[in-house]
Write a protein that binds this DNA or RNA. Structure first.
Length: 375
DNA sequence: AGGCCTACG
DNA sequence: CGTA
DNA sequence: GCCT
């Protein structure tokens, strides 16, 4: 996180009696990260050669704010450590394209997340669905030693680390990452400076705006984008309503993209809406990347299954240029620097009669299994 | 042994 | 093949 | 990897 913000948060913590270190040492018990993903930090920590990695907790800003209001460090749930561990395994299998094991660990992690009560001991998870012998071994290790060697090995693995870096680029999946890895490439600088590598448009945008779109999007930024989309959609059709969906609608403070649902009352009125909005974004010079998906929605073929139909609505995946001056509470300091940030934005325009279902669908979970439960 | 979300560009 |  |  930025220096100013770090100083502010450190001062706040010290005023509450917390001991805040400026450098990493074996005294450090809790590390708060804001922009960096937890697993990225774990990688870095391992390179620092600290003795007891088990004793260190990597936490997000919500742990910090909760601990501040509690006046003491709130205990880190073992459950959270287990979930992270299982997700690391799932991700590793995803990167090496082992669909089955990947899904198995994803489901196991998701089962733990959905438990109404916190897991206090191994007995609390016995008999739960999707927790087989392999998963149980990981859970037992974390209860007993605070970590699982299987997971630690994955985190140390060069292939895992490298594939993770490569797939962090928008447009790069396991296949491409693996190809680059087999060519002996190990970091992003080597990729961009290799003239024999030919990137597709998605990947070009991914590298071009890598720094910006890797950063979390704040609620203030989402709201600024909302004002922009409302303004433009209103010009196209004054009857359009724009709804912020996805994580921000569920009250999250940060997200990796911003989702909007555009709604026009009256059947068939959504036709041509997105193309018109996109045209205006383009002529304003804020459209950095576009992936437009034609609707295949056909009500005659889908008489009642409106949830399944969700995936057929007209939608587009964009990267937009957000001016910093348009974000509330964001003062532009450098007069000669980039005064904007690239942000991933999704727009969806369902037919009027599907609007309530689309709203529910785009506000909830991304996993299809969990979606169909709503039905 | 075979499935694990699916549709689009 | 990559995205959501 | 877990389930059927």
């Amino acid at each position: 996180m930025g220096k100013t913000r770090r100083n502010f948060l450190a001062g706040l913590a010290r005023s509450k009696g917390f001991c805040v270190e400026n450098t990493l040492s074996s005294n450090v018990t809790h590390i708060v990260a804001e922009d960096n993903p937890a697993d990225e930090l774990w990688l870095w920590l391992q390179k620092q050669g600290i003795a007891d990695l088990d004793k260190i907790n990597v936490l997000d800003i919500s742990w910090f704010t909760q601990s501040m209001s509690a006046g003491r460090p709130i205990p880190v749930e073992v459950q959270h450590r287990i979930e992270d561990a299982l997700e690391v395994l799932a991700e590793n299998y995803e990167l090496i394209e082992s669909v089955g094991p990947c899904l198995g660990f994803k489901k196991a992690a998701s089962v733990l997340k959905s438990l109404p009560v916190p897991v206090r001991s191994i007995r609390d998870v016995e008999g739960l669905p999707c927790l087989g012998p392999e998963t149980m071994a990981v859970i037992e290790d974390i209860f007993e030693f605070g970590s699982s060697s299987k997971v630690e090995d994955v985190l140390k693995d060069e292939r895992y680390q490298t594939l993770k870096i490569f797939t962090s680029v928008f447009g790069v999946g396991p296949k491409t990452a693996e190809k680059w890895y087999r060519q002996g490439l190990r970091n992003l600088t080597q990729i961009v400076s290799d003239s024999t590598i030919h990137l597709n448009n998605m990947q070009k945008a991914g590298f071009q705006y890598y720094d910006d779109i890797s950063k979390p999007v704040s609620k203030a930024e989402a709201e600024a984008l909302s004002r922009i989309i409302v303004e433009i959609a209103g010009c196209v059709n004054p009857e359009v309503t724009v709804t912020l969906t996805g994580g921000f609608r569920r009250g999250k403070e940060f997200g990796h993209d911003v989702d909007f649902l555009l709604h026009v009352p009256g059947p068939g009125k959504e036709d041509g809406l997105l193309p018109a909005v996109i045209d205006r974004l383009r002529s304003q010079g804020v459209l950095l990347y576009l992936d437009f998906q034609e609707s295949t929605f056909d009500i005659s073929k889908l008489p009642s299954c409106r949830f399944e139909a969700m995936d057929h609505f007209q939608k587009c995946f964009l990267i937009l240029k957000l001016k910093k001056e348009q974000v509330v509470g964001q003062q532009v300091e450098q007069r000669c620097g980039k005064d904007w940030k690239a942000v991933r934005v999704d727009l969806v325009a369902p037919p009027a009669e599907c609007y309530p279902f689309a709203l529910l669908g785009w506000s909830g979970s991304t996993v299809r299994d969990e979606r169909s439960c709503i039905k």
